[in-house]
Design a binder for these strands. Structure first.
Lengths: 193, 193, 193, 193
DNA sequence: TATGAATGAGGATTCATTCAT
DNA sequence: GATGAATGAATCCTCATTCAT
């Protein structure tokens, strides 16, 4: 379950909703407090500052998101199945937690440099992990040799970008279908002859 | 040439630099004025408000970016060549106008709904154009039939995402090499057989 | 009592003093806050804007002023006594609440049209009330028939104008004497032969 | 004729129109320049500052207004006729030069103290003149003895106040009728027996 | 622990005034 | 003289943060 029911989670939930709707800067701490049904001062009992709140939100959200990714990738099965599961889980996340997704996508700019670096590294580790996985799949003969770094970026890029469409526009599609379409093209591009 | 030397361009240039560095909200109009070497009031002689300034920046930047796209796509040549040229131009844009790219990528959130819609439609038209081009290429036997909408999104998504890496991280690579890598994988995924 | 001691009244009082001294436009919100001994932000906790502050000031002041008028007019007694009481109360108000009077007299220009209309109607109702009272007094044989509308305006006009002198100049006189003088002339003008 | 056609008068005329419509503070120098059909800098060729412009406007307008008053009062004829002429001229002025009247009535607040004093003295001299005239009329047996100072203020007060109604509300009436009504009541109040 | 009244630093915007052309 | 582009002081208002209750 994404949300607990304690006060801290209430606040986080409210913040995700409002930051997603109106952006970090256009949301006031007072609004978050109201949405969460607590007093303004209470927010400061759980988060040192508005910035800190966003930091924790992004940590929470990306942990949740990336944990899923590694869980799938480290499981058993062929690469193609893994990619399809990843894609499906990605779109499921964007569909179910549109608010969280929007905050990850758009508000990571308003974070301090050190957290920004931390996030970039987190994504970089994912890219590296994927790159390595692709390399191994190539060595195992599952796919043909390509520029693994670029291919890894393509995969994540496609996912983020289609996810972004989900988040900002009214573009709709079933998770399975979208995941299938993407992996179909990617796989054709990667598979051995 | 991207920049003229009149006062309006000086201000736009300063704004691109600062918005890219620090974001729209963290940049004050006074800072833009200083960077441009003009008085605060002068900025308001050219732009009705800070918002309006961002609007015009985004119009300018996306016009510049998309014009290039259509110029290439409507030229002669096979699909693969076109895709490579598009990709190369894309990365050239991101390398040369990092500031502009960062503003397009990250600050489009801080725009009013009507401009947001306008931008989304602009990108949507590009997707549709690409989709149609892919369909025609398939009919002409250049590529195999796929989900053209998804494929179009994959292509643009890959470009944006790799471009985003260029913009925010220190990831580097030659425009030709990056373009080649991406199109290589995409083309394998699309080509007949 | 005109003034309570809560924070809202402190601010109103400070605003009356400063607006009266320097006018609405020449008084800054910061000055009002300082005079009231509160922070600038506190003012905005009680009044949505500087305009809104003036609106509420005028509502408050004119309510206070007009309530007194109707209280007297609806009491018992002959017309002449009523007019004298009205005049005396009018001057008492101007003497005691010079600040408030100055704001009523001079700052009603800086209000939005709707409040302006509201104020004009308030005064219009008073004129009408007075006109009707004069008419009844004429029917009762207390005064001779005249143009009641013009007479009503003369009375209020005389009061406002002499009051204005009190407010802007150093012209001084006892409330009783001024009221007596005015009503003496008016009454001679109105009384039956 | 009130208006000449030279550039200075064009500007004054425009200023009267705009100050009357929107008040001194809500009118910008640029607007005055546009309305007058000249450049912004040109205004400063004729008036040292916006303040100075208002000063000269008020001097011009009050000179015009008071000159008429003294012209009538110093002419031949009985007091009653003079009062009626004064009243008629007063309302004619307010009807014909509503803009000018509104500026006199409402914008005299935004003037520096020295000019304010000058205006107050101007009106004071008029009051004194009227007071003296009333006194002489009393000695000549034209009217009964009253408090001449108060009576003088009543007359001017009635005129200003009814004039103010003309200026701000839609209250209408023929100059002759209004003048007649006022003087009728006043005269009854003043006349012997 | 929870609250929200109070605060004031910070920033967008306006506009009277100047001055080079 | 006439002009209007350029200027920046001045001011309204917001909102993150604190702290007494």
């Amino acid at each position: 379950m994404l949300w607990s029911t304690d006060k801290r989670s209430q606040i986080l939930q409210a913040a995700f909703k409002l930051f997603a709707q109106k952006g970090f800067f256009h949301t006031t701490v007072e609004e978050v407090a109201q949405e969460a049904g607590v007093g303004k001062g209470t927010v400061y009992g759980y988060f040192a500052s508005k910035q800190e709140m966003l930091h924790q939100m992004l940590c929470f959200a990306t942990d949740y998101y990336f944990d899923k990714f590694y869980e799938v990738m480290e499981g058993n099965g062929g690469l193609r199945e893994k990619l399809e599961t990843i894609a499906r889980e990605h779109f499921r996340f964007f569909n179910r937690h549109k608010d969280v997704a929007r905050v990850i996508l758009f508000e990571h700019r308003h974070i301090t440099d050190d957290l920004g670096d931390w996030l970039i590294q987190k994504e970089q580790r994912r890219i590296n992990f994927l790159e390595e996985t692709l390399r191994q799949a190539a060595e195992a003969g599952e796919i043909r040799p390509v520029d693994y770094q670029v291919a890894a970026r393509m995969i994540t890029g496609s996912l983020w970008n289609v996810g972004m469409e989900l988040a900002i526009s009214s573009f709709q599609g079933s998770e399975r279908q979208m995941a299938g379409g993407i992996v179909d093209v990617i796989w054709s591009g990667l598979k051995k002859e």
